[in-house]
Design a protein around this nucleic acid. Structure first.
Lengths: 329, 329
DNA sequence: CTGAAAGCGCTTACAG
DNA sequence: CTGAAAGCGCTTACAG
């Protein structure tokens, strides 16, 4: 920067003003400065700028697992919205090491990020959120939500969506229904199971595998739980899953035990991941506007960074039931 | 930091030494400092530290498209390796806007990152790489490679893998073979097509769709090109694809035109993405050690950051041919 | 409009 | 071992 100032025959302040497009420098000097800067290939240090001005136009996005398309679809949505809002997005991946969340979030904070976006908060993260709040770093919860946390959130109404899907399965004639949910620690999984249970209850039923409806959100878990289910309840006529990945595992188990879907067994997923409609696989599921969640999250965070002090908002985005081939219509 | 120094009754330098674990402070003072820092919830600013010390233990990873599992598998591999090497990884997503590469890469540089990892470089990026080199920022090319670029690279031997796969298809009896490749701008796609062509040439054949073997690496492009192919060459008996996603599109076209795979048509992909072996879909393809590429990339970059000046290295990792149900054995 | 100077929060020689 | 001080590269009041 000093070189540019010297080259243009002006003060450092003039260079700063010219480069940041601020007033305080004549048009003539500005042009000269810009030319010299270009010639010298000068680029201002964001580090120094952010340190001095106290804030950075950077949003940190913490992904629980970057190999999970659910999260990367959200991440994709943040890019465009961030561009429009004049922010840069820096993504961190926990890679399944949830215990790293604190370190990763604090690392963003130590770098003076403007705000944070979280995709998979659980109740145990409350102390971290409190620390962030103490340090004045705004954040938005994407999809998953910590109960009672006074922070912005954007997602869908999982409970209602699950209820609708449950009613569809019941309308198809199923009566011996199993629910293979996710972990109750995830607000999304908890709400989905609550919706399924409500639908069954209204029909005077309960899941054949109650209360053991919880489990992992993996294909392997889906397969294992399906095998156990088929062993105990050979006459089960529907399996409602916490997400599409679990449904994939159930499908594996069906193939291995010779069950036909939907003739012998109705099957539903949740999320409408891309693999839910590949080739012969046409899974009935719920479409989640992941991209939009990412976009809105950035916008909410940008507003929060711009002017703090407002009451936190909870924004419910629309979902869509996708009736496909794994349930009878 | 001044608060901590005051609280512990020592100088700022002592606090700095204590927190960074450096000598120059008595055990007694160190303990006191650490206690006070803890009490105050003090965390050093990485911004200030990096600015002052000139380098940051941060690696920037630039992803062409974070929704592409190929890249996120690589990204996943970088996390563990970075942990071990004491680096933090900050991921940026171009989201298909390849023209943003320069800005994104430079933004990492302006933040004084220790080095950069690229996943999808093309020849047109040479000026950017030259700028990076001028600024002394080391980088590693993951998988894709710019010809003649004197920088570290880690990937697989696409040409040989493609050649092996082509020979397998020929061994299955196919003779009227089409190649649906990616873009020649990608070194990986170019090498794959080169391998396929070599295999065909050795059998005295050439692709029925020569020279129009190039196209986009998308499912839609695969479907469209397959339909065009079936119209012009109804008797084609094998389609060799540039990657698994294209093969998925071909499969769509097969379903729509009533072609059975592999009875009527042999089909191969490349990459062995997870969707290549879901349910009834069991695609013959090539497994690429994506995770390992990410890991090795970080290690190579870490060495480069530690001690520059060595000759650039090119590391070829092993691939594996996966013979499954879309080709006859 | 312009320049000299302070300061963001650290690290790191350099004397004591 | 300890403290005072310079400096990383910027931005931003503050006088001229």
């Amino acid at each position: 920067m000093a070189d540019v100032a010297r080259g243009a025959g002006v003060s450092q302040a003039a260079v700063s003003y010219a480069l940041s497009g601020n007033p305080g420098v004549s048009a003539e000097a500005r042009e000269k400065i810009l030319t010299i800067a270009e010639e010298l290939g000068y680029r201002p240090s964001k580090l120094a700028r952010d340190l001095r001005s106290g804030t950075a136009d950077v949003i940190g996005l913490v992904l629980a697992d970057i190999t999970n398309p659910f999260y990367t679809d959200i991440a994709s949505g943040t890019a465009d919205a961030a561009d429009e809002a004049g922010f840069e997005v820096l993504i961190s991946n926990l890679g399944g090491h949830d215990n790293r969340l604190r370190d990763v979030a604090m690392a963003h904070a130590d770098r003076h990020c403007g705000g944070l976006l979280f995709t998979s908060l659980v109740a145990g993260d409350r102390p971290l959120l409190a620390d962030l709040r103490r340090r004045g770093i705004p954040f938005v919860q994407l999809y998953r939500r910590v109960r009672g946390e006074p922070a912005d959130w954007v997602g869908i109404d999982d409970r209602t969506a699950a209820h609708e899907l449950g009613c569809h399965v019941l309308a198809g004639g199923a009566r011996r229904i199993a629910v293979l949910g996710g972990t109750p620690r995830s607000s999304a999984s908890a709400n989905r199971v609550a919706g399924y249970r409500a639908a069954l209850r209204e029909a005077g039923l309960k899941a054949v595998n109650e209360p053991g409806v919880w489990g992992e959100l993996t294909r392997q878990s889906g397969a294992e739980r399906a095998h156990a289910l088929f062993a105990r309840h050979p006459d089960v006529d529907a399996v409602i899953c916490g997400n599409d990945v679990i449904a994939l595992g159930v499908l594996d188990a069906c193939r291995e035990t010779g069950r036909r879907v939907p003739a012998d067994l109705a099957l539903t997923g949740f999320d409408d991941m891309s693999f839910a409609s590949v080739g012969n696989l046409q899974l009935t599921t719920v479409a989640v506007p992941r991209d939009l969640i990412g976009r809105r999250g950035v916008q909410m965070l940008a507003e929060r960074i711009g002017g703090p002090g407002r009451a936190p908002r909870a924004e419910v985005l629309p979902h869509a039931i996708r009736l496909r081939d794994t349930t009878s219509r």
